[in-house]
Design a protein around this nucleic acid. Structure first.
Lengths: 217, 217
DNA sequence: TGGTAAGTCAAGCACCTGACTTAATCTCCC
DNA sequence: GGGAGATTAAGTCAGGTGCTTGACTTACCA
């Protein structure tokens, strides 16, 4: 697939070099704390404008990193989605929602940086929108939400939205926490990414199926 | 309480000016995207070193902002803690955990910036530690955790830690989401901070009391 | 009331950043 | 085999940054 010609191979190789260097630096020091120059140097490019040449602005670089991973995550999600079929068990749909990211991180092998990168981008006031654009285009994600809604028909729309946000936050930030703990050799609550996803699934199922105490609205 | 002398009053006034200006800029544009110079100017200080003079480094400024709010939040938490006494109902303890931040934000009046600021600082690789230091010293927080543990004696320690992290993430980021929606005039799932806290409490109670599916550890 | 110290202001410093320019290098395709 | 075009290297530039310096203002207190 990649690099039909020698030239294209080289180019995509340096692009990949820049992407991984940027991902690492961003995760460890913060997206805004790292300059494009530093990324170029860390990628072994003597040219200090290599990032600008290949990707444009820093926002474009962030988008490229996000997209690279989203492709793989989307594959996993589609596979899980196919496995659950038309289940009416909340747990099955929650697994579709929860497992792709941890499974992707497990597949990358240690160490990883994407979860921390992701958590940062998702909370930054200006970068946030990039991530939303990248992830909300997923067709399988839409189907999962629909499947979940079918399992929980009596849940008010507002609460549904609220709990969707909650689930998203938990998935992203718990993965980032675990990734950071692994990077720093700090103890983690779970032995593996798979177990971590199980714990996350327990929580998210409970969260979705929790009774709604009425408010004065 | 503040400003025994005229001089001290002026000083604490400019300090306050800097703190609120910084909080607003940090929340809206990102902590690292805003320079100390910009903060000084936004605070109406012609001097571009005002931040440096009064607070030192940017990390110190962040710490000062965090501390200012933590004091008020701690008061609310202590009050709620006294009200729950020695309850054995998980919901009571969860309310102690969940309500202080939304209640504090409600008391500040609209618009607020602290929740967004907080979410950023909590996910930044270098600033994170500051926030942890500031919030983990809370004695009432320790008592709440202990009370919660008493209600859930059979929960494994690892899962306890895991779900504590989850609750923390939910509290911070859901508050930030709501705050952002209010700032942008976007619809919010809940009509008030109090209702938002109720929804959050529903989720966190469910999360803590969820059954633990065994893993291979 | 005058000295003192704290706070404010303005200017300058070295450094870093993104953007631009120019030159060298190399693959591709005719 | 050679020119065209794309990629990398290297140097430059203006603007912004944190930090330092020194002079000025002002409230405090002996």
């Amino acid at each position: 697939m990649a690099g039909r010609t020698v030239r294209e191979e080289q180019v995509s190789a340096t692009r990949e070099l820049i992407l991984t260097a940027a991902e690492r630096l961003f995760a460890e020091r913060g997206v805004l704390a790292v300059s494009n120059r530093q990324v170029s140097e860390a990628a072994g490019q003597g040219n200090n404008t290599a990032v600008g040449y290949h990707f444009g602005t820093k926002a474009d670089l962030v988008r490229a990193i996000a997209r690279k991973h989203q492709v793989r995550i989307e594959e996993i999600r589609a596979r899980l989605l196919a496995e659950t079929g038309d289940s009416t068990d909340v747990r099955d749909w929650v697994d579709c929602l929860v497992r792709p990211v941890p499974e992707h991180l497990a597949a990358l092998g240690s160490p990883t940086w994407f979860a921390r990168f992701c958590a940062q981008v998702m909370t930054d006031p200006v970068l946030q929108q990039i991530m939303v654009e990248e992830s909300m285009t997923s067709p399988s994600l839409r189907k999962i939400v629909e499947g979940l809604n079918r399992c929980l028909p009596e849940l008010p729309a507002d609460v549904r939205a609220e709990r969707g946000e909650m689930a998203r936050h938990l998935i992203v930030h718990m993965a980032a926490d675990r990734e950071r703990a692994l990077a720093e050799n700090t103890p983690t609550p779970r032995a593996s990414w798979h177990d971590a996803a199980t714990g996350l699934g327990d929580a998210v199922v409970a969260l979705w199926t929790a009774p709604v105490t009425p408010t004065g609205r």
